[in-house]
Design a protein around this nucleic acid. Structure first.
Lengths: 343, 343
DNA sequence: TGGCAATGTGTATGCGGTTCCACATTTATA
DNA sequence: TATAAATGTGGAACCGCATACACATTGCCA
């Protein structure tokens, strides 16, 4: 039902004003099929005069395309995601798509609700930063012919994915620490249920053994990627009898939390203990000391994810695409050569 | 054109499987009008069996509602916005709406492009963090019967708005500094073309005069709300012959930039010069010293903006709504009592 | 000059729903 | 028991657009 208090014009009115049929108007507007120069001009003029804007919902009905993609992530408020979102949005809007934002809080229930909603909205694709293992939700989408690409968080080989090489990143970080002379390196991991976390741990572990540094299980504690958990993880570490001169946190937020805990306990970063983060979020460059970290190309991840999902729509039968981006070591002030005794 | 390789069921198929007409199926599915208990059950069962999901685009065609709102802002990557985006999304999704994200970069051209796009998509409402004076764009939307509410950035009395009291906030900040004994307080403003910036300047200015502190024009320099501009503004300030013991930056990003410049020039924050920010973004609590600032209720702004825009849709003729939230002083480590001589 | 391809245009149909309305049944009321 | 009201149901129109198809008209070539 049209809103009676406003006058939005339809293609019928445009056609009428231009003195042609809707078919011709449609062709002129879409620049498709045969239209005489004269007709086209008159339709375009009429459209402009009436301030005509197509109703894309109506178009979607016939075309089957909505030119909409969804970005489903745990929380935009997590400083890792805005850049990803921006990358997605930039590529999408450049290509005529718009993006729907969905925050799941890593909550399976919310994820399911969004999946249902996105199916009803007939979005063309979804970029999914899954937080819980949710193959069934992904396949609900793909079964409807919706293109899905995962960002950052892997989920087996079920669908396209763009991520950075977490193992390589953790290797980079750990080797940096080893290169600095550290031989007791603690690790604050993310939730071990996430492939991302497992891979970073793997990189940490492998760097240790290949660097001839012994791995001490007591030196790894699990966090949840939030600042507070980094803080608490460090308090745990400090309470243990074992010693370390460096700590590698699986993300920057936890690294900052760890730095705070260290400071509160009277330790000096980086001389007493070096700390290394992961992600290179904005915060990393303004802490004191400035945080050494490994940068993920966040914007590019989003951008490429959007590119991938759009490519997938055009070619549903293509083989699985996997884009593995390379992380980059960013050395700042929170990591220096080992000096003092272990703490 | 249906995608031939997938089987998405329609209400016709549901009706057929349930052995009723589409009209009845529709009523059963929407719980509207008269439907016998038996029919309803059979329709619901058929829907479930077929994994039926309504096509909301088709529904929009008749109902004229898309249950979609757009959030148009300069850049999600600006740490101020993710929280408001989250607020918007939370309220919206709780009420059955989904939100489209648009980044304009404060670029009039992009704004116009998005406005056109949103008109074509027939969104029900848009939440607009305008960056350039763009009354014409706003009225293009409202003329189409689209509800518009401004967040943060004002634009005269053209439409609904939710913002925080910038004058009050700047008063809070400046009075805090004055209360600490500072009598030469520099000000790094935002772009003076924005009402937001003007208001914060106004609060700064008014606090000065009412606090019996003389206002020195040379002590205010204009930035662009980015960190780098805060850095450069401070360099400017340092180069001038005038002296100051405190600086109030119109947002946290610029405050951090200013702190960096100060530090580089050998000044100690807060003892040599106190620095005060605005916004209370995440970064503010992890700088060293931790930044004193005035907090805006960002999440609430988004949440209330969504509430307001939805209310407006239901009641297009209601009188203008203006929601003025109160900012809050957050004192951390970057501001202390004046001690040394002016710099 | 005939015939065929290239152009241009309009009618009608369908996309997937909702809803008005006409038509049955029941049920309640006088 | 006659009648009115409540309850169920389906046919068909319509939302705004795209497009298949039929039907002109024109241009070109043999």
């Amino acid at each position: 039902m049209r809103k009676w208090w406003v006058a939005i014009s339809t293609i019928y009115e445009v056609a009428q004003k231009a003195g042609v049929s809707v078919a011709t108007a449609s062709r002129a507007l879409n620049d498709s099929g045969y239209v005489s120069r004269e007709s086209r001009d008159r339709v375009l003029a009429a459209a402009k005069a009436l301030d005509y804007h197509i109703n894309v919902n109506a178009r979607s009905l016939t075309s089957g395309k909505t030119y909409t993609i969804a970005l489903v992530l745990p929380d935009v408020t997590n400083p890792f995601f805005p850049a990803v979102a921006r990358g997605v949005e930039d590529y999408a809007s450049d290509n005529g798509y718009c993006v729907i934002l969905c925050n799941t809080d890593g909550n399976a229930r919310k994820e399911s609700d969004y999946v249902r909603m996105l199916r009803s909205r007939k979005v063309d694709g979804v970029i999914f930063a899954v937080s819980v293992a949710s193959k069934s939700r992904v396949s609900a989408l793909t079964d409807d012919g919706i293109a899905v690409v995962l960002v950052d968080r892997d989920l087996g080989d079920s669908c396209d994915i763009v991520k950075t090489d977490n193992i390589a990143g953790a290797l980079l970080a750990t080797n940096h620490l080893i290169g600095l002379g550290h031989t007791s390196i603690a690790f604050i991991s993310g939730p071990m249920s996430l492939a991302t976390s497992q891979e970073r741990f793997r990189g940490y572990h492998d760097a240790l053994v290949s660097g001839g540094v012994s791995f001490d299980e007591r030196l790894v504690v699990e966090g949840d990627f939030r600042m507070k958990s980094g803080y608490e993880a460090m308090r745990d570490l400090l309470r243990k009898p074992c010693q370390f001169t460096a700590v590698f946190a699986a993300n920057d937020l936890m690294a900052v939390g760890a730095m705070t805990a260290l400071e509160e306990s009277g330790f000096h970063v980086p001389t007493d203990v070096a700390v290394m983060g992961y992600d290179d979020i904005d915060i990393a460059s303004v802490t004191r000391p400035r945080l050494s970290t490994v940068a993920q190309p966040k914007y590019e991840m989003g951008w490429i994810a959007a590119e991938t999902v759009i490519r997938r729509m055009c070619n549903p039968k293509a083989s699985r695409m996997e884009e593995l981006l390379q992380p980059m070591l960013v050395v700042r002030d929170s990591t220096v050569e080992r000096r003092g005794a272990s703490v």
